Simulated scan of single mutants.
Amino acid sequence: MQIKIQRWLFSLLIIGALFVGGCGSSPVADSTATSNPASGENISLSPSPSPAAVAASSQFSNLPRLEGKATVVMTVKGAPITIELDGTNAPITAGNFVDLVQKGVYDGLVFHRVVREPQPFVVQGGDPQGKDPKFPTARLGTGGFIDPKTTTERRIPLEIKAKGAANPTYSQTLEEAGVKEKPVLVHSRGAVAMARSQSPDSASSQFYFTLTDVPFLDGSYAVFGYVKQGMDVIDKIEAGDRIEKATVTQGLENFKPVQ
């Protein structure tokens, strides 16, 4: 019983720490690993897009997409971190990330949250306000990408594809949508996912790396890729370290920007 209580308290502590302050609509919460990657269920769902999926595709047509894989190399402390993005299973989330990399949004941004105690959790960054060294550290984690075309913050929908599904579930956690299958992309060590607030469609530019498997957040936050090389670099990141440069090195032909 004591062990169960300790785990429950730890989960509350972690989730609370990842919901960054400011306004409730700001894209700042966080997630980490949750489902069982070893699970091999073979679920057969309808192969044809549902009306909801078609509507979602039309609704988010103003957002960039990645139709396939792409590789991003992020340099921190002079060392490279190689990330493989999965636009097959998270086209909007991965496309948004590629677009921001292409725009240079992440260059110079700070990692404002690093959680390793009481056990390893995440390294989070991507708040554009962090590019200003004079911006108050306490307020980092409340900002998102301001699209110069609209002069408003670009937000993307929560996008999670369940195993066996033809299309991702949008704007709902899998539990809210009544989906019992596990996500295709789980929060194993080295996952890259979008941070958000309580609103499912509040993610913008903030992302996080998982430092370990944290399955209790699978199905609630959008994983869109995995670190292929450089976890040793991520393991040494401290709050205040900056992204020196982020570059798309492969797969740009799969990127579909908004025209």
Rank of each mutant, 00 (worst) to 15 (best):
P133W: 03
F97L: 07
K149I: 01
G108I: 04
V122P: 00
F121M: 03
P51K: 04
E41R: 06
N96R: 10
T152G: 08
F97D: 03
A70C: 05
P64L: 07
E84G: 13
T151P: 00
D127L: 07
N96L: 02
L45M: 11
G68A: 09
A55R: 06
A79C: 07
P157A: 01
L66P: 15
T142R: 13
E159D: 02
E159P: 01
M74Y: 04
E84V: 07
T82P: 08
H112P: 11
S58K: 11
V98Y: 05
R154Y: 00
R154D: 09
I83A: 09
G126Q: 10
V72R: 03
K134G: 13
V76G: 05
Q102Y: 07
A70F: 02
I81L: 15
Q59K: 15
P51I: 08
Y106T: 06
G144M: 03
V72G: 05
P47W: 14
E159L: 00
I146C: 09
T88F: 04
G104V: 05
N96V: 01
S44N: 15
E159Y: 01
F121Y: 11
L158G: 04
L158I: 02
T150F: 07
D107P: 10
I83R: 08
F111W: 02
G68S: 10
R155Q: 13
P133N: 00
R113N: 03
T137I: 08
L66R: 04
Q102K: 12
I92C: 02
V114M: 06
Q119F: 13
Q102H: 12
N96I: 05
V72M: 02
G108S: 11
I43K: 09
E117L: 10
V73C: 03
A53T: 11
V122Q: 05
E41Q: 09
T88C: 04
P133F: 03
L158Y: 02
L109T: 13
S61D: 08
S61H: 12
P64V: 01
I81Q: 09
P128I: 02
D86P: 03
D127T: 04
G141H: 07
A52T: 10
M74Q: 12
V123A: 08
K69N: 02
E117W: 06
R65A: 14
P157V: 10
K161L: 05
G141M: 09
T152V: 00
D127K: 02
S44D: 10
I160G: 00
P133C: 00
G125V: 01
M74L: 08
T137N: 14
L109E: 14
K131S: 08
F145R: 11
L100S: 12
T152K: 15
T93M: 13
S48D: 13
L66I: 04
V76R: 14
P51S: 07
P148A: 08
L66H: 09
A90N: 06
R154S: 03
N42A: 15
G126M: 06
Q102G: 14
P80F: 08
Q129F: 01
A94T: 01
A53K: 01
E117Y: 11
E153R: 14
